[in-house]
Design a protein around this nucleic acid. Sequence first.
DNA 1: TGTAGATATGAAACCGCTTTCTCAGCTCTT
DNA 2: AAGAGCTGAGAAAGCGGTTTCATATCTACA
Lengths: 335, 335
Amino acid sequence: MRQSRARTQRVTITDVGHAAGVSPATVSRVLNGTAKVDAVLAGRVQAAVRTLGYHPNAAAQGLAKGRWGTIGVLVPDLANPYFPEILKAVSAVARANGHRVMIMESEENPAVEPELVADLLRSCDGLLLCSPRMRRDQLAELVARAHPMVLVNRIVPGLAVPAISVDFYGGTTSICGHLAQLGHRDVAYLSGPEASWANGERIRALEAAAAFGLRVTVIPAGATAADGGAAAEQALAAGATAVVTYNDLVAQGALARYRQLGVDVPTELSVVGFDNLSLDWSGQATLTTVAMPRDDLGRQAAELLERLMTGSPDTEPKLLPMELLIHETTGPAAR
Amino acid sequence: MRQSRARTQRVTITDVGHAAGVSPATVSRVLNGTAKVDAVLAGRVQAAVRTLGYHPNAAAQGLAKGRWGTIGVLVPDLANPYFPEILKAVSAVARANGHRVMIMESEENPAVEPELVADLLRSCDGLLLCSPRMRRDQLAELVARAHPMVLVNRIVPGLAVPAISVDFYGGTTSICGHLAQLGHRDVAYLSGPEASWANGERIRALEAAAAFGLRVTVIPAGATAADGGAAAEQALAAGATAVVTYNDLVAQGALARYRQLGVDVPTELSVVGFDNLSLDWSGQATLTTVAMPRDDLGRQAAELLERLMTGSPDTEPKLLPMELLIHETTGPAAR
DNA sequence: TGTAGATATGAAACCGCTTTCTCAGCTCTT
DNA sequence: AAGAGCTGAGAAAGCGGTTTCATATCTACA
């Protein structure tokens, strides 16, 4: 008997009204402050809420109000140290605005993204898509649904959708400048996921670096340390004196492999990371890399979304600058 | 006009029924497969769903069914590399069971946890509390609310609540054994958050290691690399020949500081981590540490929760074993 | 002092979906 | 051939809130 009581929902607004000797409508008004209520009644309501331990049912509120009080976030991979920090910032902003956060991860699989997004749309007021890998036309379809939505780290040319990204092109260019200055000519790029816009930006910048006299070989790798380790040797085979990587994880994996192979960094080979992940928690900033303002990215994206949800349309894509951090894994070109 | 249409909710089940020439009840039955429906009608419904682009409203479903299809997770700190992996496993299990995941982070602040949990309870069918820092009595109160709930990495003696944790005591003991064998006598422990049960377990094991002849000095540090760096010197001042840390982050911070100070590890000082975080993505396993089965932890916790939500009561706390990984930061005691 | 106007409260409709209840239309006995 | 037993579909009643609408009470002014 008691068990079934516990199962069959807890205290309702009617119970509270009953206990306080007022109508449910009045309870609602007190709790939301939507209308003036006699101080005495309000007091009785507050008391009843406390003694009964009343908590409004979120589903019922959502249904009645037409909004959920929740924002959804889609990330490709939670284990990538890159995202938790963004999530942290997003979470903080959302909370400050009275919103909950629902997170889904696509496991780097573009195919499941539309389904996940559809699922998020059913229960969120707004969406934050981090580095979405899905096809352009699928994105366009989403945008057409006219839900508040912000793209993080992907800019879709010709698609008017609010987006906030990091200036990967600029970051990559500064890497190229640094390498060129050190006398490097042959550069290998350990490339990230095919479908990644951010990866495309890096490649675009690398190709433009022909202007600095850099010859670039693109080697498909991936986004993890394991991918970096696996692709590391191909960079050597390509005759590169410097290796640029998709991110710090790939760089770490490659570095580990080079250590194994007895290739000294940076005297024999220079290695450059991307994102500046490691510094955050190891205190040892040995990897030359470019820093991404992750906290800013998450915060600004969330703030933009909150603004969208309250109405103001603002579809101007925004780029956050990156900073080149020269550390111990780059040096003058060998030979 | 069109804008207000977009705002005022999308396609409803009634619209679909209308388009298919059936009642909303029938649409619901087709979509949920809850009852036999004529194949012809079902076909018309499916078609209508597709052409109208119907997606059931989650709040309405939640309200009607009395469940939300969502599980909530509370973590102290998303930026700690420890949690994303757990979340990943949880996320996968939840998804496999048709559940969404709602995540909140307490920013290591025990004071806000009750509020966050209350918020989660309003919109989730079950809760996963990871390393909750909140007071015992607050936890007891939560348990009394009789919601499906699993504690991860905290065992509250005398409180019958499903819990799944890692055997920190055993892990710490194996560290102590390793150090004793190397001839260490004076050990410093860079301690984690006060309110952390896991930290208490480590200290309990360290104190018990007096049996191995170890004298332990506990030095308050924290959970981050910065905390480790800040507390590193105190360990030297205490005359320790070996430093045990709350986790790998703290260890990395301390290592970085010792490098700065010119203290050689492991010849002058041994350093032991906890959790085995770094290995995952750097490929370089130089830190001696104990490995925590994070993936297992997340998966088993989520599976336990799913089981609870379908009814079966199972409050036997479970401990997952840790594994000592001896690498390059420990050696024979100096002097 | 009587009536217009303001205002706080309760009754009831509604949000979109599920589920029980009811009943029409069958099949199957005898 | 007529009544009993199924079966599948629609009508309607919630789920637990919010919000509109109607009304009782009170203030204010002539």
